[in-house]
C-alpha cells in the first residue's frame, strides 16, 4: 500500500520535474498568440480584414468528417458496432473542425475588439496607478484632512458598481462632449475616452488599497532612518518607503490588472465595441452562442494569462534579495 503510494508520489514528482517544459510550452503559445494578434492589428489598420487561414478548408473538413460518420452509421454488417463507435469520434472531429472554421472566420473581428480591450485595460491601470500612489500615501501618511479625503474617495468608488459609475459619467455627465477634439481619424471614439476615464477613476481606488496595505508592511524604522539622515518626510516616503512598498504591492496589483481586463467588458454598455461587444455582435448575427462565448472565454483567458506571466516576469526583474514574498517562499 505504502509502496504504491510512494510510486504515485515519485510519478507526481517526475511530472513536477517536467513543469519547466510546461512553462516554456506556455510561453511559446503565448508568443504565437501575441505575434498573431499584433500582425492581425497591423493588417486590419492597413485595411485587410480577411482571415489568415482558409475558412472553407475547415468547413470542408467538418462536412467530410460528418458525411463519413453518417456513412459508417448506415453500415449494418458484422463491423457495425465498431464503425458506430468510430463514427462517434468522427462526429467529434467534425464539431472541432467546424468550431475552428467558425473561429478562423470571426477572429479578425474579435482581434479588432481585443485592441480596445487592451487599450482600455492598459490606460485604466496606468492612469489609475498614477492616482493610486498619492492616494495610498495620503491614506497612510496623510494628515486628518488628506487621509479623510482619500478614504472617502476610495470607499465611495469601491462601494458603488463600476457600471453605475460608467453610466453616470457617460449618460449622466455626458462626458463625451469633452473628448470631441481627440476622437477624429485613427484616434479612439469619444466613448472609449470616457471609458478610460471611468476605469481610471475606479481602478485608482482599488489599486490604492493594494498599495496601502503594501506600504503598511514596510517597517516604520525605514522612514525613521530616512528622516534621521535629513530627508524630509515626503522625500523619505518617495525614496525609501515607496520603492519597497510598490514591490510588495506587485502580487496584489496583478490581481487588479486581471480584474480590469475582464471588467473592461463593461465598456460595451456605453457603446464601446471592445472584445466582449464584438463577440456579442457576432452572436447576434450567427446565433452560435456556444461557439462565440467559448471563443471569447479563450480569448480573455489568453489575455489574462499573458498579464499574469508578464507581471511574474516584472516581479522577478525588480526583485531584491531579502525583500518581498518571492524570497520568503524559498
Amino acid at each position: 500500500m505504502s509502496g504504491e503510494r510512494s510510486t504515485a508520489r515519485t510519478t507526481l514528482a517526475r511530472a513536477g520535474e517536467g513543469l519547466p517544459t510546461g512553462r516554456s510550452v506556455g510561453l511559446a503559445i503565448g508568443a504565437l498568440f501575441w505575434a498573431w494578434l499584433v500582425v492581425r492589428w497591423v493588417t486590419i489598420w492597413a485595411g485587410y480584414s480577411e482571415p489568415f487561414f482558409p475558412v472553407a478548408f475547415f468547413e470542408g473538413l467538418a462536412t467530410g468528417f460528418e458525411n463519413d460518420a453518417l456513412v459508417m452509421q448506415q453500415n449494418t454488417g458484422a463491423l457495425a458496432p465498431v464503425l458506430d463507435f468510430v463514427a462517434g469520434f468522427w462526429f467529434l472531429f467534425s464539431d472541432v473542425a467546424s468550431f475552428v472554421a467558425f473561429a478562423v472566420e470571426y477572429l479578425p473581428t474579435l482581434a479588432e475588439g481585443a485592441w480596445l480591450t487592451v487599450v482600455l485595460t492598459v490606460a485604466g491601470i496606468a492612469f489609475g496607478l498614477v492616482i493610486a500612489v498619492p492616494l495610498s500615501v495620503a491614506r497612510v501618511y496623510g494628515g486628518v484632512v488628506t487621509r479623510s479625503l482619500a478614504l472617502v474617495y476610495i470607499e465611495l468608488i469601491r462601494g458603488t458598481p463600476l457600471l453605475a459609475q460608467l453610466f453616470v459619467i457617460y449618460y449622466g455627465l455626458n462626458m463625451s462632449q469633452y473628448f470631441r477634439g481627440v476622437s477624429s481619424g485613427l484616434l479612439p471614439t469619444t466613448a472609449v475616452w470616457v471609458a478610460i476615464v471611468g476605469f481610471t477613476i475606479n481602478s485608482a481606488a482599488y489599486q490604492a488599497e493594494y498599495i496601502r496595505s503594501a506600504l503598511e508592511s514596510v517597517e516604520s524604522g525605514q522612514l525613521t532612518a530616512a528622516r534621521a539622515i535629513g530627508l524630509s518626510r515626503i522625500d523619505g516616503i518617495r525614496h525609501v518607503v515607496l520603492p519597497q512598498g510598490l514591490r510588495y504591492a506587485i502580487p496584489g496589483w496583478t490581481n487588479e490588472l486581471v480584474y480590469l481586463i475582464k471588467y473592461s467588458s463593461l465598456a460595451a454598455f456605453i457603446t464601446v465595441v471592445e472584445l466582449f461587444e464584438s463577440g456579442r455582435d457576432i452572436a447576434g448575427q450567427t446565433f452560435q452562442y456556444l461557439n462565440i462565448y467559448a471563443l471569447l472565454a479563450l480569448f480573455y483567458l489568453a489575455l489574462v494569462l499573458s498579464a499574469t506571466l508578464f507581471m511574474g516576469w516584472v516581479e522577478d526583474r525588480v526583485a531584491i534579495p531579502g525583500l518581498g514574498v518571492r524570497d520568503g517562499r524559498e
Partner: peptide, 19 residues
C-alpha cells in the same frame, strides 16, 4: 532636516534601507 544633517544616528534595529 538641517538638524539631522548635523546630528547622525545609528539605530538598534539598524534600519538599513532594504531595497
Amino acid at each position: 532636516n538641517d538638524l539631522r544633517r548635523r546630528v547622525g544616528m545609528v539605530f538598534q534595529d539598524i534600519n538599513l534601507f532594504a531595497h
